[in-house]
């Protein structure tokens, strides 16, 4: 018997030293997967009420999707677009307000009115149309958040202007999920809404959540990561030119979906992806797009004004990485990586 206890003790010590910690902590960990907002979502949370929390989270995702989808004619957004405005719900108003704020703060780099441009290029349908100068100019006359006004819950838009809150809806939703988890007493959770990641607290072993950043580039698969950032209570949201690309079958040229609202063309700034790390999911979602459009120099200047609100990881098209000071110590990569100082 003594021998056995020795062996068991050794096995325990061994597994502890090797870091293969078993499941522990209060409540079991539960995972839920679903398809919504045109993407694949996973949610994992730990706590006594994990199941109820996940039920509530799923219901909230479906509710927000029904409000905000531009793909469905029944959604509130589709109704506003069809009627050129009208009254909207509290959530839509909150999201639209955040979008308009982001437009102002980023000097137009984030713009929720580029739907006519996206449609012109064929991104929603998946069939590429490379627009002519005249077509672009015409579409640009109705884009720009200056064509939208919001007063309380009343929206009005200039003729031809359309809004699409898809650029911040997932960040807004993941932020809302964290609130729901908290209200159910869940202290540890992580969600990925189609690659938009947000986490609550820390892992069950007490360590921060390890969030990989997808490696951009033609040769890289979706399995490859460029680095790992360890975070607690943060959203980690990336915009990359590897997503939603359309190829011109004649010229072989590839067009990505992150349009520069000032030109109407895919932003070409030498960046392959921008990751924002922030406790505010909505902000992170808006800024990942905005900073991609801005390019390295402008994005860094913008960060210096607001470093207390977010951090960022920039991956250039040459594969090298620049990471802001606030998150540099939490970021690990094997690539060339420079720190952006304040």
């Amino acid at each position: 018997m003594k021998r056995f206890s020795f062996l068991i003790a050794a096995a325990l010590v061994l597994s502890f030293l090797a870091g293969c910690s078993g499941a522990s902590g209060r409540g079991a960990s539960m995972t839920r997967e679903l398809f919504a907002m045109d993407t694949y979502m996973t949610m994992t949370c730990r706590g006594e009420n994990a199941e109820q929390a996940l039920d509530a989270a799923e219901a909230e995702i479906l509710r927000l999707d029904a409000l905000l989808s531009t793909g469905s004619t029944d959604s509130e957004i589709s109704r506003l677009n069809a009627e050129g405005g009208g009254a909207c719900s509290e959530d839509t108003a909150a999201l639209l307000r955040a979008a308009l704020d982001a437009y102002r703060e980023t000097d137009g780099a984030f713009d929720c009115t580029i739907l006519p441009l996206m449609e012109l290029w064929g991104f929603p349908s998946g069939t590429l149309h490379v627009p002519t100068e005249a077509e672009l100019e015409h579409a640009l006359t109705v884009t720009g958040s200056r064509h939208v006004s919001l007063s309380g819950s009343a929206v009005s838009m200039d003729p031809g202007t359309k809004i699409d809150l898809g650029g911040i809806a997932k960040g807004f939703t993941s932020g809302r999920l964290m609130e729901i988890f908290r209200s159910f007493g869940v202290e540890s959770a992580i969600v990925s809404l189609g690659g938009n990641v947000q986490c609550l607290g820390s892992r069950s072993d007490g360590a921060g959540w390890r969030c990989g950043i997808r490696a951009p580039g033609d040769g890289a698969s979706s399995d490859d990561i460029a680095g790992v950032v360890t975070v607690r209570d943060k959203a980690v949201i990336t915009s990359g030119s590897y997503e939603r690309r359309l190829t011109d079958e004649v010229t072989g040229r590839i067009y990505h979906h992150i349009l520069d609202p000032s030109t109407g063309r895919p932003a070409d700034t030498g960046l392959a992806s921008v990751t924002i790390v922030s406790s505010d999911g909505t902000l992170a979602d808006a800024l990942s797009t905005a900073c991609f459009v801005m390019g390295e120099e402008k994005a860094e200047a913008f960060w210096r004004e607001r470093f207390d609100e977010f951090d960022m990881i920039l991956i250039r098209t040459d594969g090298s990485i620049r990471v802001t000071e606030g998150v540099a110590d939490a970021f690990v990569t094997s690539r060339p990586c420079a720190v952006i100082p304040k």
Binding site: T42, T44, I190, S192, G195, N196, V197, C199, R203, W209, R210, C211, G212, I213, R214, S222, D223, I225, G227, V228, V236, I237, T238, G240, Y242, E243, T275, V332, T333, S334
Partner: peptide
């Protein structure tokens, strides 16, 4: 040894 998908809890993309 090193960062890889195995080591991560989620991937931002």
């Amino acid at each position: 040894v090193g960062p890889g998908r195995r080591d991560t809890d989620a991937v931002s993309e």
